[in-house]
C-alpha cells in the first residue's frame, strides 16, 4: 500500500488469529487474517456459514465470547489505537463511539422494553457530553437521517411497533449516532425482504458517503457485494483466500472457490436461459474446522486440486496488481472457465 493511502487507513488488522476451545478440540475460527479499511471505504467480507466472517468482526469489536473463544494473535489498530491491548473499560468507550456494529436481526439487538428514542439517547449520553434534551433532539435527528417517517412520533415507540425494515433503520441510526470512524454491518439485510433490502442498502451506502464512515460489510450474497463494496475479501474455513477490488474480483476471480461461488449462484439474469437449467455446483461441503485437511482447506472440493494442494497450504500471494489469492494454481487459472 502506498504511503499516501496509508494516512486514510482507519482500521488495520494484521495476522488476526481467533480460536475456540471446545469439547471436540481447538478450532481456528479466524486464521491469520489481515486487512485494512480506509475512510469512506466499503470492505466486503464474503463467505458461507462457518467461514469465520462474523468471528472476524467480533474479534475487531472485542466481542468474542471468552470462554470458549479467544483472540490469540495479531493486532487490530483503529485510528492508531491497538484495540487488543485495551482493557474492558477503555474498549467500552470505543464501542458505539468510534466503532459500531449492526446485526442481521434488529429485533434481537434492540431492547424491547425501551423506546427507540431512549435507546439512541443512551448511546449519545454515554459517549458525549449532552443533556437529556439535547440527546433526545439528536436522536430524533438521527431517525430523520435514516429516513424514518414522522421521527418525532417514532422516537416514542417501542421496537415491536416498528416493521423489520424500520427496526434496521433505527439500528443504523443508533450505530451512527456518535459518528463512528468504522461501521461493521453483519448481514444487515439478510432478514429483510428484497424491496426493503434495496432501501436499506441504498441508505447505508448513502450515509456512509455523507459521513465518511469506513464500512465492513459481512455478507454471503455476492449481489450485495457487487452493489456496495469497493474491496472484497473472500473467506473459506477461517482463512482469507482472496482479496481484490470489487471490479477485479467479479471480472477475474482467481481462487477456484470464488469462481465456484459465482457459478453456483442462480442469477435472475439467467431468465433468458433454458428452463430448469442445472446450476454449477461446488461438490461436497465446508470441512469441519476441528478436522481441517493438511493442505488447502478447499482442495477436497476443488476440481483443479493437485497433490501439492493436498499437502501444503498455499500462501496468500499477489497474483495481479492489488489482487491476492491463496491458491497454488491461481496464476495458471487465467482463461480457465
Amino acid at each position: 500500500m502506498s504511503e499516501a493511502r496509508k494516512d486514510d487507513t482507519i482500521l488495520d488488522v494484521k495476522n488476526l488469529q481467533t480460536v475456540f476451545f471446545t469439547n471436540s478440540g481447538l478450532f481456528r475460527a479466524v486464521d491469520d487474517v489481515s486487512f485494512t479499511v480506509r475512510r469512506g471505504e466499503t470492505l466486503a467480507i464474503v463467505g458461507e456459514s462457518g467461514c469465520g466472517k462474523s468471528v472476524t468482526a467480533l474479534s475487531v469489536m472485542r466481542l468474542v465470547p471468552d470462554p470458549p473463544g479467544r483472540v490469540v494473535g495479531g493486532s487490530v489498530t483503529l485510528e492508531g489505537t491497538d484495540l487488543l491491548s485495551l482493557d474492558e473499560a477503555e474498549m467500552r468507550d470505543i464501542r458505539g463511539n468510534r466503532i459500531s456494529m449492526i446485526f442481521q436481526e434488529p429485533m434481537t439487538s434492540l431492547n424491547p422494553v425501551m423506546r427507540i428514542g431512549d435507546q439512541i439517547t443512551e448511546v449519545l449520553r454515554l459517549h458525549q457530553e449532552m443533556t437529556a434534551k439535547e440527546a433526545w433532539a439528536k436522536a430524533v435527528e438521527m431517525l430523520r437521517l435514516v429516513r424514518i417517517p414522522e421521527p418525532d412520533r417514532r422516537a416514542h415507540e417501542y421496537p415491536h411497533q416498528l416493521s423489520g425494515g424500520m427496526r434496521q433503520r433505527a439500528m443504523i441510526a443508533m450505530a451512527l449516532a456518535c459518528r463512528p470512524a468504522l461501521l461493521i454491518a453483519d448481514e444487515p439485510t439478510t432478514a429483510l425482504d428484497v424491496t426493503i433490502q434495496a432501501q436499506i442498502l441504498a441508505l447505508i451506502v448513502d450515509l456512509q458517503k455523507k459521513l465518511g464512515t469506513g464500512l465492513i460489510l459481512i455478507t454471503h450474497d455476492l449481489g450485495v457485494v457487487a452493489q456496495t463494496a469497493q474491496r472484497v475479501i473472500v473467506m473459506y474455513a477461517g482463512k482469507k483466500v482472496e482479496e481484490a477490488t470489487v471490479e477485479d474480483l467479479f471480472e477475474n476471480p482467481k481462487h477456484p472457490y470464488t469462481r465456484g461461488l459465482m457459478a453456483s449462484m442462480p442469477a435472475v439474469i439467467s431468465f433468458g436461459a433454458k428452463t430448469d437449467a442445472r446450476l454449477n455446483e461446488i461438490p461436497g461441503m465446508v470441512p469441519s474446522l476441528t478436522n481441517l485437511p493438511p493442505g488447502c482447506a478447499f482442495a477436497p472440493r476443488c476440481r483443479l486440486a493437485v497433490d501439492r494442494c493436498r499437502a501444503e497450504y498455499p500462501p496468500l500471494q499477489e497474483v495481479d496488481g492489488d489482487h491476492f489469492a491463496a491458491c497454488w494454481r491461481a496464476t495458471e487459472l487465467v482463461g480457465v472457465p
Partner: peptide, 12 residues
C-alpha cells in the same frame, strides 16, 4: 430490487 452480482451494473 435484486442486487445484481455485477459491479458495473450498479443501480442501488
Amino acid at each position: 430490487s435484486v442486487p445484481v452480482a455485477d459491479p458495473k451494473a450498479k443501480r442501488l
